[in-house]
Amino acid sequence: MKAADGEECSDVRGAAAAEEPGVSRHRQTPMKPTWTLLEEAAQMKTEGNAFYRERNIRSAIGRYHRALLILRGLDSDVMASVKDFGPETPALMPEQEALLRNTQVDCYNNLAACLLQKDSVDHARVQEYSLRVLQWRPGNVKALYRAGVATLEMGDAQTAKQYLIQACREQPNDANVRKHLQRAEEKLNWELQKEKAMYRGMFSPSSKNSSVEGVKQTNGAGEGV
């Protein structure tokens, strides 16, 4: 497994909220059976994977995005917050719930992976998508890796190290995971050395002498008034 690779991509803001320009909005029909909607979402994801392999990123984004929009209306976690504003959706069977979550996990993982491949990476968005996956799949290696990379780039090496350690436990031979784990450790070591140097400077003899001289000069100036 290459944690940074795979059939994955995206460049959307709020994958479950608005569509990419040029992609028509998928309107769910209440009459459609749940299985039909789940299968449509899975098909959208499959098409997105195919577009991604062809490096047709824009079309892949549209497919992943449409898949998430379809699933939004079936997700009990989402619909619970708006149950008073529309018809109540029936509870999913265990098999349906599993398909919904698996498709969501794949789409959000794919969106995060695509963002990481852009020249200008939105690391906050990568982190957001990866953490959504980890809510449902705490041990998902791809999400752990990408959360670690994004968090490291955002400046939190300590938290990034924890994500990357977990990913490394699952995939100890993955070169990308080990490389970024080493980066996190080097950054933490650099920050520690910098902190030590700062404290040495604060409490060095020359610093103390400077403080004493400053007090003497202040007192001398006061005596002349």
Rank of each mutant, 00 (worst) to 15 (best):
M1P: 02
A4E: 14
G6R: 10
G6F: 11
V12I: 14
R13I: 15
A15T: 04
G22Q: 05
V23E: 04
R25Q: 13
H26G: 06
H26V: 14
K32E: 12
P33W: 04
T34M: 11
A41T: 04
E54A: 11
E54F: 04
E54W: 04
R55K: 14
N56D: 06
S59P: 00
S59Y: 09
R63E: 09
Y64A: 04
Y64H: 08
A67K: 01
I70P: 01
V78Y: 13
A80K: 08
A80G: 08
G86W: 04
G86P: 07
P87F: 08
E88P: 01
T89E: 12
T89F: 12
M93V: 02
M93K: 15
E95Y: 05
L99W: 06
L100I: 11
T103W: 02
V105C: 06
D106L: 06
C107T: 04
A113D: 01
S120M: 09
S120R: 13
S120L: 11
R125L: 10
R125F: 13
E128F: 15
R132L: 15
L134E: 03
R137K: 14
R137G: 02
P138E: 08
N140T: 01
N140I: 04
K142L: 02
R146W: 04
L152P: 04
L152G: 07
M154Y: 12
M154Q: 15
K161I: 00
Q162I: 03
A167T: 03
Q171H: 07
N173M: 09
L181Q: 03
Q182W: 00
Q182Y: 03
N189G: 12
W190D: 15
L192W: 03
M198T: 08
R200N: 08
S207C: 01
S211G: 02
G214S: 09
G214A: 07
V215D: 01
V215Y: 02
K216W: 06
K216S: 03
G222M: 14
V225Y: 11
V225I: 12
